[in-house]
Amino acid sequence: MGYQFDFSAVIGNWKLLLIGLQNSIILGATCLVLGLSLGLIVGGMRYMRAPIVNWPATAFVEVFRNTPVLVQIMWFFFAFPIISPVEINAFTAASLGLTLNTAAFSAEIFRAGIRSVEKGQWEAGKAIGMTYIQQLRRIVLPQAIRRMLPAFMNRAVELMKMTSLASVIAYGELMHKAKQISTLEFNPIEMYTVVALIFFALIFPLALFVQRFELKLKDSG
């Protein structure tokens, strides 16, 4: 083989990579906040029995959970603009795909979390005279959210990885910058190795933290 590694072009382009990393984090954070909020709403809708509320929420969740994210992002970038009255740039398209995908998964986490609280807990609250909202706020949600946290943190990890898919529609995140640099400098081995390392450095601590947290939850019962 005798390949001579040469990282000088990678280091020389560090400013570009930093901008890419920044964009990746902006995209991930935006989609996490929006996705969780929308997920709470959709999860609540799935929890209700009225078909007019439940059915659209269920359809939404199933569509976004059962199609590839890459397809969702491409669809929002290439197909959606044709039927949409407003302009869709790469960031908007990527955000739409990733946010809706995160919302669909977190809706299920919310729903499962609330369902995991035993019926007796609602009843005990009701029996001392609590309203439905008080039962939810004081008794059920505090227990449910503790159980949901590891799943949400895993979502955040997954989302961070999925941001790299936005490179296919030329959103200037880390992966896209790397592609540009490696085409100009003919250094795919060095470039993509470094990108992998950057992602690893970013995500591994987060994943470790989730594992620790899950263990701690298990210990405290």
């Binding site: 005279g129 609590m130 008794i139 227990q143």
Partner: peptide, 20 residues
Amino acid sequence: LTQIRARIGMVFQHFNLFPH
């Protein structure tokens, strides 16, 4: 009904204490 429930205490077979 909420007010009535507040005036009548109930204890269950499985305690149903709030674990948190």
